[in-house]
Design a protein around this nucleic acid. Structure first.
Length: 585
DNA sequence: AAAAAGATGAGGGCGGTT
DNA sequence: AACCGCCCTCATCTTTTT
């Protein structure tokens, strides 16, 4: 349930201007001494490998693809033989750490990275992106400079940064680079067989240092997992089939037990959501940032009459969940009884597809009517196929003889588990209702996951709701009977804020609703002030923008670093602040 | 000016068959 | 393993209408 992404456009020009200047200056001053990225390594690898032996070349390519240089790979294969990929990889990783020169503890004046972690270094992520957008061709070196300085400002040494950039290739994202460095550090510790000792790294940004600190005892496990992932050539997280996560109501499954990484254990509890079918690698990154918690992928078709494949990263208990009552209709016929009369037997749909932000046009339904009215009984298979394809694509339902139509907004509200007319009135247009609803949670699904909180917080909870949208989390908790004490809701879209405010007043809430417009303005000071006033948050919920992840996006599906979807890093930033506050207090 | 309609595929999972 | 066909996807941009 991301905020209305369209609302971002107005004010994205000035929020990072300061940091941009800062990094700008930084990169210019450091560029003179920077050795140019070794482009030959990347471009040349293809030729070399294709001319290599047959079975050998594949192995060769694989390691080159991981970002190691030809020379290293050749040497490693020679040393280990080409059968033992595991030891080859170990050797390669040893090389890469040995080549890292001893910490020269590059001191960085990081007065700007004060303890409140106001996100200045994370802003660099979007800077990298917007720059490459503007100067696509000429800025290769410039971009590398930018990455280098970003890495250095995150507390890594120049050597670490340069080597990571060399190994990971020109197109490596900042996340990949930090991951590489992290892996190198871990393997170094492991190779030395020394007790894990914290190298006092000067003035790391608190997000990074806290993350590394918390990871300490999991380093080894993490490293093994990452190594396995590399060997499997399977960086992407696998989606479960069937997509029932850690369990759904009325579906037989073995009792699942999970152990959370220690750094992830609450309180505070957190609950993060986004589209399941994101571009490759996105969920791996999300999971790594959110304390290595394994995502729970659930299709809401197990909760209601429409599909909704989503991933949820949370640290909630998963035992003794219970569904919201009354149970919502589980089939199209139950949800929309009036359509039954007109539903042809050759349309075998029992569930609707994912509810999105746009609806089918009147012209389309007219074309379908025209295509059907030539036939008395069943249309030919070809026509059936055409009609069914369009119906599935646009979630059309049968409302008359040969007549299909898109869902009405109140039908979408019902399917998603919201009260009737939740998004109606208050000056919102029909188009915007579809948009807000399409971006929302499926309430029954989320409520099922959050239900475990009911016994834990009989007196109610303090909720931080980021990217609140139309308040799916709030509605879910309310319907569960969990009192809402203090709710801080951050949502960029004004109409959405009005919807939540209106719902809050109509449901006679006893608590206190504070709504803010922009997550990027929610800095450490403001957050601390809020938390001090009512004793911190019990739960941090958020579904960050999916714009740049969702398959429906034809134009800007550029992943987690995309303009809107990069706000995920603000979710992490804020969650990390809340966690740190709770741990100290 | 605002709302609605219309035009616009790529990408990836999955199950089946070679 | 590899290939193929089927299916689905929290959307954006431009044009037209109100």
């Amino acid at each position: 349930m991301d905020g209305d992404a369209s609302g971002v456009e107005g004010d994205n020009c000035d929020w990072n201007s300061e940091d941009e200047r800062e990094i700008d200056d930084f990169s210019l001053s450091s560029s003179s001494s920077l050795t140019p990225p070794n482009e030959e390594t990347v471009t040349g690898s293809g030729e070399a490998s294709s001319s290599a032996g047959s079975s050998n070349s594949k192995l060769f390519d694989k390691f080159i693809g991981m970002g190691f240089t030809e020379k290293m790979v050749a040497k490693a294969i020679q040393e280990n033989g080409e059968d033992n990929t595991d030891s080859i990889l170990n050797t390669l990783l040893t090389y890469s750490t040995l080549e890292t020169s001893p910490q020269e503890q590059q001191h960085i004046d990081s007065d700007n990275y004060s303890l409140d972690c106001d996100g200045s270094f994370l802003d660099g992520f979007s800077d990298v992106d917007s720059w490459s957008d503007n100067e696509e061709i000429t800025n290769t070196v410039f971009d590398e400079d930018n990455k280098l300085s970003s890495l250095m400002s995150m507390g890594y040494t120049r050597d670490e940064a340069s080597i990571a950039m060399e190994r990971c290739g020109l197109n490596a994202s900042l996340v990949e680079l930090t991951d590489f460095i992290c892996a190198a550090q871990i393997s170094k510790v492991e190779d030395a067989h020394l007790p894990v000792e914290e190298k006092p790294r000067p003035k790391l940004p608190c997000i990074v240092s806290a993350k590394l600190k918390k990871r300490k005892q999991y380093d080894y496990e993490m490293w093994k997992r990452k190594k396995q992932a590399l060997l499997d050539d399977d960086e992407t997280i696998r989606l479960p089939n069937p997509m029932i996560g850690f369990g759904v109501p009325n579906e037989s499954h073995p009792t699942i037990h999970r152990t959370l990484p220690e750094a992830a254990i609450g309180p505070p509890y957190f609950y993060y959501e986004n589209v399941a079918l994101a571009p490759k690698g996105v969920w791996t990154t999300i999971s790594r940032f959110l304390y290595d918690v394994e995502p729970e992928f659930v299709d809401s078709k197990y909760f209601c009459a429409s599909a909704r494949k989503r991933g949820y990263v949370h640290n909630l208990p998963i035992q003794n969940r219970f569904p919201l009552l009354p149970l919502p209709p589980h089939t199209i016929h139950e949800a929309l009884p009036l359509t039954r009369k007109w539903w042809p037997s050759w349309d075998e749909r029992t569930k609707l597809n994912c509810l999105q932000t746009c609806i089918g046009s009147a012209k389309l339904t007219e074309r379908i009517r025209k295509a059907l009215e030539d036939y008395d009984g069943e249309p030919p298979l070809r026509v059936q196929k055409y009609v069914l394809d369009e119906c599935r694509k646009w979630n059309l339902v049968w409302v008359g003889r040969n007549k299909v139509a898109p869902l009405e907004p109140d039908e979408v509200e019902m399917l998603l588990g919201f009260p009737r007319n939740h998004t109606r009135g208050g000056g919102i247009s029909r188009t915007d209702r579809y948009k807000s609803l399409g971006n929302s949670f499926q309430v029954d699904t989320v409520a099922y996951h959050l239900s475990v909180l009911k016994d834990m917080f009989p007196g109610g909870i303090n909720l931080l709701s980021l990217f609140s949208g139309i308040g799916g989390a709030e509605v879910a908790l309310h319907r569960l009977g969990i009192p809402l004490k203090n709710v801080v809701s951050v949502e960029i879209s004004e109409v959405n804020r009005n919807i939540v405010r209106s719902w809050w007043e109509q449901t006679n809430q006893k608590g206190n609703l504070i709504d803010l417009a922009d997550v990027q303005q929610l800095n450490g000071d403001r957050l601390e002030q809020l938390m001090n006033s009512f004793g911190g948050f019990d739960l941090v919920v958020g579904g960050s923008p999916c714009n740049n992840l969702a398959g429906s996006n034809r134009h800007h599906r550029d992943g987690l670093e995309g303009k809107e979807s990069a706000l995920f890093y603000d979710y992490f930033r804020i969650l990390d602040l809340v966690k740190n506050w709770s741990n100290v207090s």
